Structures are given as C-alpha cells and as structure tokens.
Amino acid sequence: MVKDNFVQTFLESRLTTLHNASAPSVTNYKQKIIAFIVATVLISLLPILHIGVFYAKIWVPQKGYIDKRTCSNTCFDTIFRGSYENPGATPYKHVYFNATWQTSRIWIFTVVFILLAYESIKYLIPLMRRRKLRTSMFCLYLVNLYPHYYSWWSYFSYYNEDFYNYFKHHFMFTVTEIIATCIVLNLCNRKNEVVSWKVLAIVSINLMHILVSGLDQFVSHVLQGKGTNFQSARDIGLMIPDSLHVIIPIWQLFMSAKNREVRLNELCNREEIIMCIVFISIFTLIGRIM
C-alpha cells in the first residue's frame, strides 16, 4: 500500500510538473500564431489598400484598361524565366522583374521591412494579451505605420526607377525613424519605465524631422499651397506622426513626474537636454544639406 501511494504521488508530481512546464509553451505558441496572423493580414493589406484602393479607385481612376491578350513588354530580360522565354516582345505577365542589382536591393529592403514589421507585432501581441500595453505609446506605433510604409515604397521606387536624388536624405529619416520606433516599442510595455532619455530621444528625432521636412516640403506644399493634392496629403500624413511623437512622449513624461510628485525638469538632466539640442541642430543641418 505504501509503495502504491508512493508511485501514485510520484506520477502525480511528474504530471503536474509536465503540465506546468508545457503551459507557458502552449501560451507562447498561441501568441506566435496570433502574431503571425495579425502580421500577415496587416502587411498584406497595406499594398492592397495603397495600390488597389487609393491609387486605382481614388488617385488615378482614369488609367486605361490593359488588354492582356494583345499587350507585350520589350524591356523584360526574361532571365528569371530561364529557358522558357527569351528577350523581345514578351506576352503579358502580372509581375515582371529583371535580374539586376537594383532588383536584389528591392528584395532586400522588402524582406527587412517585412521582418521588422513582424517582429514588432510579435512583441506587441503578448503585451496586449497580458494587458501590459501602454496605450499612448501603442498609438504612436500605429500612427507611424504610414511613414514606415512610405519609406519602403520610396526605396522600392528609387531602385525601380534609378532615381536617387532623395535617397540619402530619406535614408537618414528612415534610420532615425526606426530608432524612435524601437524606443516607442520598448515603452509600449508598462513594465518599462518612462524615463527622460527615452522621451528626449523620441522628441529630438521627430523635432529634427519636423524642422527638416517643414523647411523642405511642408511649408511649400501645404502652407503655401504649391503642392499637388497627393503631395499635400503625403506631407500631412508624415507631419502628423512626427508631431504626435513630440506631444505624446512629453505628456507621458509629465504624467510620470506628476505621479512621482516631482517637477518635470527634475526628471531631465542638463546634459541630456544639451545633447538633444546638439543632435537636433546637427542633424537638421545635415538633412538640409542632403
């Protein structure tokens, strides 16, 4: 009887241990599946809404119909078609691409942006499920989807059309934008404290964006009305996220100071503020030169 009780107790303890060990893995598995589905839907919808809805139905609905039976393309090198097709008047295809270094870079940029989008969503889903999401920072993440998508589309266009006049300028924006988004993602987790250096980093980067784009295109296209409807809509769509990335983090830091019952300037070191001013000044100048 004692032996039977011992065996039963041992089996129960092992089964309990196995259950406790497997529970987190099952939860993680569910989170990964949800993140994968959300990322797939979001990333798939963006170009569909961009080209299939906004471009085709709103911006350029007057574009003519393409007759697939009679059209041809003489600029297709057909390398990716192997021996099935040769250069010349090749028949219609939904996607053409030539075997060039530009195409490889389009592919690289696309893969990088997709992976970054997926990783960010994979990071956010568990926070949502555990109710540890900081709403204000999540809103910043959402409003910055358009600038990031616009960056990918711009690089696609630069390489696709061999037009690089604004490449360096845009690349600086993209790198700093990604840095700001990484900090925003970190602050999406309520466990991560809202500290001055994170807030000032976000604010500095986006103030620089505002100064460069404001002096560059926003004033001319939007305020002076010299831009086309598309240019004005684009500039507004880029300016709003930058502005919110200045307002919301400062408000969040103010609320943090209020909760601690300290003054806002007590949370910020003098050195941090000086570094922010230097960063904004230098990179605004660089942005203007580029």
Rank of each mutant, 00 (worst) to 15 (best):
V2C: 05
K3G: 04
K3F: 12
D4C: 01
T9V: 06
L15N: 10
T16P: 00
T17H: 11
A23F: 05
K30M: 10
I33G: 03
F36A: 15
I37A: 14
L42C: 11
I43P: 03
L45E: 04
P47I: 03
Y55A: 12
Y55C: 08
I58T: 06
I58D: 00
W59H: 13
K63T: 12
K68Q: 08
R69W: 01
C71N: 08
T74Y: 05
G82W: 06
S83G: 01
Y84H: 12
A89M: 04
T90G: 05
K93Q: 13
H94E: 13
T100H: 07
W101H: 10
R105L: 15
F109D: 01
F109R: 04
T110L: 09
I114S: 12
L115Y: 08
Y118K: 06
I121H: 04
K122W: 01
L124C: 04
L127P: 13
R130L: 09
K132N: 15
S136C: 01
Y146P: 07
P147E: 05
H148R: 11
W152Y: 14
W152H: 12
W153C: 05
F163S: 15
Y166W: 10
F167C: 04
F167I: 09
I178N: 03
C182T: 01
N186G: 05
N186K: 12
L187P: 03
C188A: 11
C188Q: 04
C188F: 00
N189M: 04
V195C: 12
S196K: 05
W197I: 02
I202C: 00
V203K: 01
V203A: 07
M208F: 10
H209V: 06
L211Y: 11
G214P: 05
G214C: 02
D216P: 01
Q217D: 10
L223W: 10
G227M: 05
F230L: 15
F230T: 13
F230E: 14
Q231P: 07
P249N: 03
L253Y: 11
M255K: 15
N259P: 02
R260T: 05
R260Y: 05
V262H: 08
N265G: 07
N269W: 00
M275W: 08
M275F: 10
M275Y: 12
S281E: 02
F283D: 00
T284Q: 07
I289F: 14
